[in-house]
């Protein structure tokens, strides 16, 4: 059994931390782990993708096209930009907060509508779960906790072999103590979130 998670969004949204949270949990649960990321120029508010793969056997750090079980999309357009990595019949958990790229603000491009996004996902039978992750993160105490909210929603889905306590243990392990409560709350809000768009 192998698990392939794709995480995408805008540089600065905490994608690498979400990756770290899942990868560290998988490691503690005894799985072999590979997590892939890109650093440097690509991180500066541009489009970012990371991968977490774990199981009894794992190979490279990148999920091959069409083999991701799940995508955690921190932004709607950035979800679609990496949809090729998701398998037919997979799941897309999407933060519904749109961040228009400068090119859209300049009027050079249109931001796609939810109807379009829903249609594209339905064409490949990918299930959409849209949650207001940024609002929930703010409710937990900081917009920077979007990543933990998204991880909470992913665990709720039941596709990954982790219990909420497993993630909370990792939160304790990798975050400084003063951020524990905030992230526990963010996790719970993500876990309990009702899909806003589906």
């Amino acid at each position: 059994m192998e698990f392939n998670v794709v995480i995408s969004g805008v540089g600065g949204q905490g994608i690498l931390t979400a990756e770290h949270l899942l990868a560290q949990t998988a490691l503690r649960k005894g799985y072999k782990v590979r997590a892939g990321e890109i650093h440097g120029l690509a991180q500066r508010f541009g489009s970012v993708v990371a991968f977490v793969r774990f199981g009894e056997t794992v190979y490279g750090g990148s999920v091959p096209d069409g083999m991701g079980d799940l995508i955690l999309g921190f932004e709607p357009v950035e979800t679609m930009r990496y949809i090729n990595f998701v398998k037919d019949g997979g799941v897309a958990i999407v933060n519904t907060k749109k961040i228009p790229p400068v090119q859209v603000s300049m009027g050079l491009y249109e931001y796609p509508s939810w109807d379009e996004i829903k249609f594209w996902l339905s064409e490949r039978n990918i299930k959409l779960i849209g949650i207001p992750a940024e609002d929930l993160a703010l409710k937990a105490g900081s917009a920077l906790a979007v990543n933990t909210v998204m991880v909470g929603a992913a665990i709720k889905l039941g596709l990954l072999p982790f219990e909420p306590e497993d993630i909370k243990d990792t939160i304790k392990e990798i975050f400084p103590a003063k951020l524990h409560d905030l992230n526990f709350k963010a996790f719970d809000l993500g876990y309990e979130a009702e899909p806003e768009i589906a």
Binding site: D65, G66, K87
Partner: peptide
């Protein structure tokens, strides 16, 4: 058994509609 061609075709169609997001100077 994974049909890469079908994924590519779908992805090409979707990508053409997506606004690009190159990295940018921070706020």
């Amino acid at each position: 058994d994974v049909d890469f061609a079908a994924i590519d075709e779908h992805f090409k169609k979707v990508s053409e509609k997506l606004p690009p997001r190159p990295p940018t100077l921070c706020p």
